[in-house]
Design a binder for these strands. Structure first.
Lengths: 190, 190
DNA sequence: GTCTATAAAGCGATAGAC
DNA sequence: GTCTATCGCTTTATAGAC
């Protein structure tokens, strides 16, 4: 039977799924060894700082993915195209609401304090990149800021609602509505 | 020194705060005894089912509060007035984003499965009551449903964002925008 | 109804063999 | 780099005195 993981970087996506599923507290080292098929020895070899280092590595990995696939495109591509791509990527990444946002979940948990700077940076960066794109299609700074805030909050809330109601369609509907806030001629709610 | 709690019903709001603060897993019985100033003996006397019964009681209490203060008014008062009241109550209840929504947090945690029906009922009821009020001010059924979805998701997301950015103003701004979706002449995105 | 003592299991983390 | 054994602590829950 082939080894599932051999390098530190291979472990991180598995760790991410475990943290997403069980939360920081609920992700016990025993559960992590199960899912990674790695003994405690190997795990602490890769992450001498233990669980906290694992979570930090996961947060960095997640942020890196968003940076490359969403934030940078929002700032550097044609804004109209980048905005459409963002919604497609979000729908895909969060698997229509079946997969939660780890950073958003950490923001609600007690662990927020432990990873406060990582959590804050992630959302601040997303806000900033989205604001730039919205300004790029003609909204003034204030309106772009307001809409960026509403869109990111809307995405996070859509994940909660989809999971609570166990209804992935609700997620897609929410996303469709938020998408409407990125077109200039589409009027805005106050 | 006066006793802080004497009855089961007095304990529940304290339990709620502990669960909100530490999450279900993080709210250890030791922490609960600290905050409630009650020994384990008393605690298990009130809640023989242990932590799970405590959480269930808290969820019922929260739902009861929303039922009386938000859901019923949305369905029975003048819709314009009830909608304004809802936003005021939400801003107040969630303390401008400083206090999280326990049910929303449970929806993201692993505990979602354990309390799935309570979580689902809470959000389904909110959706339903809000939809009725929105229909009451003249939106057709589909549009009312869509907006109810967007508003509740927006509120949940606003809590995450406010906590992540450590910025209560962001919560009020989000709420103000969502409020705009409850006026008929206010144009809607898309 | 409230307390302390305690059981039994699980926790994160470490040591040391290989 | 991976494993097993183990430490010391915390967990939920129970028992029994008062």
């Amino acid at each position: 039977m082939a080894r599932l993981v051999a390098e530190r970087s291979d472990v991180i996506p598995v760790l991410a799924e475990v943290f997403r599923r069980y939360g920081y507290d609920g992700a016990s080292v025993a559960r992590i060894t199960e899912h990674t098929k790695l003994g405690k020895g190997s795990l602490y070899h890769f992450f001498p700082g233990g669980k906290e280092e694992m979570a930090t590595a996961v947060l960095a990995d997640v942020h890196g993915w968003f940076e490359a696939n969403i934030f940078v495109p929002l700032e550097e591509q044609e804004p109209e195209i980048a905005l459409v791509s963002m919604f497609a990527a979000v729908e895909d990444y969060f698997d229509s609401g079946r997969r939660i946002c780890l950073v958003g979940a950490f923001a609600l948990e007690e662990t927020r304090d432990r990873f406060a700077s990582e959590v804050k940076t992630y959302f601040a960066r997303w806000m900033e990149a989205l604001r730039v794109a919205l300004e790029g299609i003609g909204f003034d700074a204030e309106e772009a800021e307001r809409r960026a805030n509403a869109i990111i909050a809307g995405i996070q809330g859509a994940i909660i609602l989809a999971r609570a109601l166990d209804d992935t369609e609700s997620f897609s509907v929410s996303l469709g509505q938020l998408k409407g806030m990125t077109v200039r001629d589409g009027a805005t709610p106050r």
